[in-house]
Design a protein around this nucleic acid. Structure first.
Lengths: 314, 314
DNA sequence: CTGTTAGCGCATTCAT
DNA sequence: ATGAATGCGCTAACAG
């Protein structure tokens, strides 16, 4: 019995012939090891959890794919948890998972206080969070990315640009909003009313844009904090019979595949989503296996991709 | 120790005062039970898995919400597994989960052979599958639903209706296609060329529709096997400058929220997604707990919802 | 009503 | 190089 354990884990000495025999027996008996017993004994489930706020957002799907790929390579299982933006659900998941010897978390949500996170007792890496001392963070250069977008809008003739921002208090939403402000705050047409909150949701963004066009019909540029909201804005333009990009130019943020499926195709600030997911997973596993981390805060570069919703030359 | 177990599980006799004292101790020590040990002992993890082919499809998200809701009510955890249409991934999940004492599966995929499913050894309920003898099935009345859509198209003046079907061999796709055929097969304009395969994906549907419009520019009605594909078709119309619903009318199938976010809003055959999810979960739990099932095959009613992509009167 | 005991299936000493 | 013994934290059967 101990011998079988040895060959399964490739640990300790075991004669070559015995290995062979064990494998034959396994085959014959259709034996599969019991992960639960293994977990109990090792105090580890070889499982990590990826916690996301909205599973229908393709951004998180791509992230999940990336995470799953590398965790699997290292022999870990990953389980996907969708909180639907509810902190209660998130806490519930964390609690349940901890009772199951979860080895680590990748948090792509921002609902928990840093206090709660510190008490976690389980390895953790955060996506799109503000610099922690204690937990590794991965994000793209949000402020810089936002500037990229607004600058393009400006250069391409926009004379009144609105911003659809993400949730208040959410780090990445603030940063992207700041990037927008950096470039337009001092222009004479600017007013804070040009910033509306879409909570990163298509529907809310649509409603907000629809409303602001009542009072500001002369807006000719829209920078959205993510692609979903940009698409929401695009819908509104179509509904109102406003031509994109002739009358209004739109740029989103994320670079999700859905952006290429709408018409006109969405211009966007593309994050290296897949790489961010892989990096997060690698770092988490390093942390779980107690290896030293070189860096705590990873900032990825973005790329401005101009497609059908902007009037770019060339 | 056994007493603690008793109060936690509310099983067996235990004095009221003792219960109190145990709870105080739990509070004091911040004790949380170890689910892994519990699972090992009970040979059950109190968790079930919902296996879906494409997590970005809002249909499955709504399903997941429903399933999660009822499983949680019964004290189960549910874990979401996205196979991304890969049978290999699906098998991998099943294997891994079985080794973790998973209590049951809800399969919203159709990749596995019924043979494999019979060997599963774990309670299972299937969504949108053909009538099994052994496993409970839930689906909507696909053929009837399809007829609902095509009939409306016909009545509202369409004289050449194409169908974007789902994957070959997939039961629900076949049924919906049959429903289409039921109504149009004998009409003089009909030709099998009017049926294209979009594999239930937005992108593939777009490409297929784009292609068929080269040879059949006089199509004035589109019935899509799901909403995602219908939206793909809508995109193509917009790209080609074809007015919807004036020149072409479109009806999808599913009733996902996304359908209300596009412009014009999508007409569709709405399935009771949430109810289907809840029903699936209830049945699975019944099966896990060895309660008798009254019925094996549940067929839900659909509702035709006409919105902006059709020219309905009233 | 409560404490003692054995066993769930594995990994990990320690002998041999 | 291999087998026997112990423990992971819990539940269930049994005594008391």
């Amino acid at each position: 019995m101990a011998t079988v354990s040895r060959v399964l884990n490739q640990k300790g000495y075991v004669h070559k012939d015995t290995v062979q025999k064990v494998h034959e027996a396994i085959e014959m008996l259709q034996y599969t090891p019991n992960d639960i017993a293994r977990s109990l004994s090792k105090k580890s489930s070889k499982t990590i959890a990826l916690i996301v706020p909205d599973i229908t957002n393709p951004f998180f799907n791509e992230l999940a794919l990336a995470v799953e790929k590398v965790t699997q390579m290292y022999g870990y299982t990953t389980i996907l948890c969708n909180t639907n933006d509810s902190p209660a659900v998130e806490r519930q998941y964390i609690q349940t998972l901890k009772q199951k010897y979860i080895d680590g978390f990748i948090m792509a949500t921002n609902t928990l206080s840093s206090n709660e996170i510190d008490q976690l007792q389980v390895p953790l890496v955060a996506l799109d969070r503000f610099n922690f001392q204690t937990v590794p963070t991965i994000s793209s250069k949000n402020r810089e990315g936002a500037r990229l977008a607004v600058q393009a809008l400006l250069q391409q003739g926009c004379t009144k640009i609105m911003h659809i921002r993400g949730p208040k208090g959410l780090w990445i939403a603030e940063e992207r909003c700041q990037g927008y402000l950096d470039l337009v705050e001092d222009l004479d047409w600017f007013t804070p009313k040009l910033i509306v909150n879409g909570n990163f949701q298509l529907k809310e963004a649509s409603e907000a844009v629809n409303k602001i066009f009542e009072t500001h019909p002369d807006i000719d540029g829209i920078f959205a904090g993510n692609d979903l909201m940009a698409i929401g804005a695009l819908r509104v333009m179509q509904k109102r019979g406003i031509r994109v990009p002739d009358q209004v130019q739109i740029i989103g943020y994320d670079g999700i595949p859905l952006g290429e499926m709408v018409y006109p195709e969405l211009s966007t600030v593309a994050q290296p989503i897949y790489e961010m997911g892989m990096l997060a997973a690698r770092i988490l596993i390093k942390k779980i296996e107690q290896q030293p981390l070189e860096e705590m805060n990873h900032q990825m570069d973005n790329e401005l991709i101009q497609r059908g919703t902007t009037r770019h030359t060339s």
